[in-house]
Write a protein that binds this DNA or RNA. Structure first.
Length: 862
DNA sequence: GCAAGGTC
């Protein structure tokens, strides 16, 4: 029998589609990458019996990047990124081994049906899948048609079955438009980001962002926040006046009336109106009205609305909310959380979903009532053809989920119940009055039936005092007419929910990427999240946006994205040539880039006002090896050392603390060493600021500290402090941390393995001798007499940290203990290979680790 | 170290 390979965009869809097509009659197993499953069943295809094999990818298989050498920031002029720098497709997530997986599953298959999402990205992924799979399939060159595209607009039985009977072909133009988008985003984003970052970080010491990024989505997103900031700044409060009248409805009660003119901005005119009314004794009823109004039940929930409510009502950021939603989804509590659709599919089992909630401690009553009286038809929403709206899939309690997961689940469930509830009905009553020549109104709402607001109490119509019953011609006594002086107030900072709305409206990002863009501008320190999840731009954010406005406003306007997308759509529709559009658009942005570079002084003028030059930033810390003056340590991101005399900047490892290391100097360049530490429980190592930036030996790379230095005799080097190969990672060496006593540590110079050892020893040294068994360097350990754990109260012992039975008790491996196979193997398992420390000749890779290394060490590191 | 788009 022939085999048909079918590929969906994500594992969950592969499963749903296979279930529908096989009528639940399939067998499933996990693929080699652990993420995707393969569902098998038999059926007919093109009139013949076949095996079906349904699987999926995980989004894009490939991603676009520059060739390796163009990723060296100090070697490549960003301007080259517009045309010269070649790009290549790399596997998007190497851990998933997607190409290999597809080839294993696709080998020997006869036909392929592409079930990727029916949007441009999905069309592009079709071709990524084909690139991987076609070479290993049968008949790829026979001329017989073997590639098919299934087009579906919802995940329902009818739609999926119809798609299967009406297979077409993947659309190459749509895929090409995505290729163009990828290349534009990459070239433009990276060129501007690298240029800005290098330019401003080379001048200022307190920007507090390791990256000054630019992107066609993130920059306009920031632009929205700064635009609101500017409105607040330029706001001039204006004084205005309003008339307020009070009438008595009976002896005790009175009613406040609103002025029909609302407000006037001229005091004298307000005064004139006041004079015309204040002596009147009666207010005449001119008209009354009572209208029944409805507050509509919500539309079915999509991602963007969920994120808005999560931010504004639950105080959860979009990124965080999505993480929680994904967890709820994978645990089966809610349906797929990334969707634009607000319309339930025709066959959606609304009652079934509702019944699951009928015994929930919080909303059983509302649900039971709905089931008894009949649910209301949901409002007609938008069907984007992606996934059904977000709904609960099973009942869950607060105790079961806890914390934010529960709060999000509760909201999703209440929202779902609300969509099948009735509208809230209320009565809007209005009474129009005349006092002298002026007109006033009073209105109030009374609820007739709460409908969905019962399950969404935060949406209820506020309780108001009911209005008196009266009719045209009635009169009421006027209590008083007052003139109130008020001031217009500025808008507040943009809330996250408002920002999401703006982004959606202008087509900035997608439901999946909106949280990422917002997160980006927070992480880069362009905005901070204030109370009420309002986004307040920082000085850096403000200066950047104002700078773009000064030089080229298009760089920050939301239209930058839509303009490019218009061009891309021409490719997708086959109306324009891919190469022409790409070349043309790149050319425009290349010109913009050069103009930006030439005009950067305009942005720099703004930077100068808010930030301090490198030379004026930071505290003196360690001495420069060239001029022997103190260099300044700049703690703000990215942390670095700056020698103002030599005008040189030396980058440092990030995310840790930097201290002077006992005024010790590097024997190669005379720079004073500094000590980097990731905290008391983590690791620390000394480094030479110069060597860290300019590796001294050929076998060293940029960014290496003394614990990776192959200097043969320096007392801080790997050669002198290295003990033996790491127990976990391939290339790491365990190195004694000479600063760690009395809680001595031995840490891997590559991964995060740390061994705590010899607590309270007053001296630990790495000996020149090596272990006869495993070739690791021996350790000399001295204890004080009173505290010695050594047998016979000895104070000194020399031995191998891996093999010596005395040391076995005194060493404890942190971080990685759980990864070790426990006590495997017997005697003779250590064959004395490859434990030599890093005394390898330059240029030669580290010795291969012994096959049974793990088991050999397990006994010692538990 | 960079973009934005998929998704785990």
């Amino acid at each position: 029998m022939k085999t048909v390979l079918m590929v969906a965009e994500k594992p969950s869809l592969a499963q749903s589609i296979a279930k529908i097509l096989s009528r639940g009659n399939m067998s499933s197993h996990k693929g080699l990458n652990g993420a995707c499953s393969v569902h098998k069943y038999t059926g007919t295809f093109a009139g013949q019996p076949v095996h079906f094999k349904m699987t999926s990818v995980c989004g894009h298989v490939m991603t676009l990047d520059f060739l390796g050498k163009y990723n060296k920031w100090d070697k490549v002029d960003p301007a080259e990124l517009f045309s010269q720098a070649p790009t290549e497709k790399k596997e998007a997530n190497p851990k998933l081994n997607m190409v290999k997986f597809l080839q294993v599953e696709g080998k020997g298959c006869d036909y392929i049906v592409l079930w990727l999402d029916c949007d441009k990205e999905g069309e592009n992924i079709c071709f990524e899948v084909l690139d991987a799979v076609l070479p290993v399939m049968n008949n790829a060159h026979s001329g017989e048609k073997i590639v098919f595209r299934a087009r579906f607009s919802s995940i329902t039985d009818t739609d999926i079955c119809n798609a299967m009977t009406r297979l077409s072909e993947p659309d190459h133009n749509e895929a090409l438009s995505v290729d163009a988008r990828q290349e534009l985003d990459l070239r433009i984003g990276c060129a501007f980001t690298r240029f800005q970052t290098k330019y401003f970080q080379g001048k200022y010491g307190d920007l507090d962002s390791s990256l000054i990024s630019f992107g066609p989505c993130q920059t306009p997103t920031l632009g929205f926040c700064v635009e609101r900031h500017d409105k607040i700044q330029s706001f001039k409060p204006e004084t205005y006046w309003v008339l307020q009248a009070k009438v008595h409805t009976n002896k005790e009660e009175s009613l406040l009336l609103d002025w029909d003119r609302v407000r006037v901005f001229d005091r004298e005119i307000a005064q004139m109106f006041l004079n015309m009314t204040k002596l009147e004794k009666e207010a005449q009823v001119e008209a009354t009205s009572r209208k029944e109004k409805a507050k509509q039940r919500p539309l079915a929930l999509n991602t963007v609305e969920m994120l808005r409510v999560a931010s504004s009502a639950l105080g959860m950021g979009p990124q965080h909310a999505m993480q929680i939603a994904e967890r709820l989804y994978t645990q089966g509590y809610i349906s797929y959380p990334r969707t634009e659709t607000t319309h339930y599919p025709e066959n959606f089992d609304l009652k079934g979903s509702l019944r699951q909630q009928a015994n929930h401690p919080y909303w059983a009553d509302s649900v039971k009532q709905l089931l008894a009286e009949g649910i209301n038809r949901p409002r007609k929403g938008h069907d984007a053809g992606d996934h059904p709206p977000i709904t609960p899939m099973k009942s869950a309690t607060e105790a079961e989920l806890g914390g934010d997961a529960w709060r999000l689940y509760e909201y999703i469930t209440r929202h779902f119940i609300a969509t099948v509830s009735h509208d809230c009905k209320y009565l809007q009553s209005t009474i129009s009055f005349r006092i002298g020549p002026e007109h006033f109104t009073c209105s109030g709402k009374t609820v007739i039936s709460p409908g969905f607001t019962e399950i969404m109490p935060w949406q209820s119509v506020p309780l108001e005092e009911s209005l008196p019953t009266c009719q045209k011609g009635d009169t009421f006594a006027v209590g008083e007419v007052k003139m109130l002086e008020k001031q217009t107030s500025p808008p507040d900072y943009l809330t996250e929910a408002e920002l999401i709305t703006l982004m959606e409206k202008h087509g900035i990002g997608t439901d999946a990427s909106i949280p990422v863009h917002i997160n980006n501008i927070c992480q880069r320190n362009y905005v901070t999240v204030e109370s009420g999840r309002r986004l307040k731009p920082t000085n850096l954010g403000i200066v950047l946006v104002h700078g773009y406005y000064k030089i080229d406003a298009e760089l920050v306007l939301p239209t930058i994205r839509s303009a490019v997308e218009k061009q891309l759509n021409l490719i997708a529709q086959g109306k324009a040539d891919y190469h022409q559009v790409l070349g043309h658009t790149l050319d425009i942005f290349k010109r913009k880039f050069h103009y930006f570079v030439d005009s950067i002084a305009g942005m720099d003028e703004l930077m100068e006002v808010s930030f301090s030059p490198l030379a004026a930033t930071g505290k003196p810390l360690s001495r420069c090896g060239k001029c022997h003056r103190f260099m300044k340590y700049i703690q703000a991101k990215p942390s670095r050392l700056h020698c103002s005399h030599c005008d040189e900047t030396y980058t440092l490892p990030q995310n840790g603390t930097i201290k002077l290391y006992k005024e010790l100097r590097c024997p190669l360049d005379d720079f004073e060493l500094v000590l980097w530490s990731s905290g008391s429980r983590g690791k620390s190592y000394p480094l030479c600021p110069y060597c860290y930036n300019h590796p001294p030996f050929r076998d060293m790379k940029k960014g290496m500290g003394c614990n990776e230095c192959t200097h043969p005799t320096c007392q801080h080097s790997l050669s002198m402090l290295g003990i033996g190969q790491c127990v976990e990672c391939e290339n790491g060496v365990l190195v004694l941390d000479p600063t760690s006593g009395p809680k001595w540590k031995v840490a891997c110079n590559t991964c995060n393995v740390v061994a705590h050892c010899f607590e309270n020893a007053h001296r630990v040294r790495v000996s020149a001798d090596t272990c006869n068994t495993c070739e690791a360097a021996l350790l000399d350990v001295d204890f004080n007499k009173a505290k010695s754990p050594l047998p016979g109260n000895e104070t000194q012992h020399t031995g191998c940290i891996f093999c010596d039975p005395v040391f076995q008790e005194l060493v404890e491996l942190k971080h990685a203990a759980s990864c070790h196979p426990m006590h495997r193997g017997g005697p003779g398992r250590r064959q004395g290979r490859g434990r030599a420390r890093g005394r390898r000749p330059p240029g030669k890779p580290n010795s291969r680790r012994p096959k049974d290394k793990m088991s050999a060490l397990a006994a010692y590191f538990v």
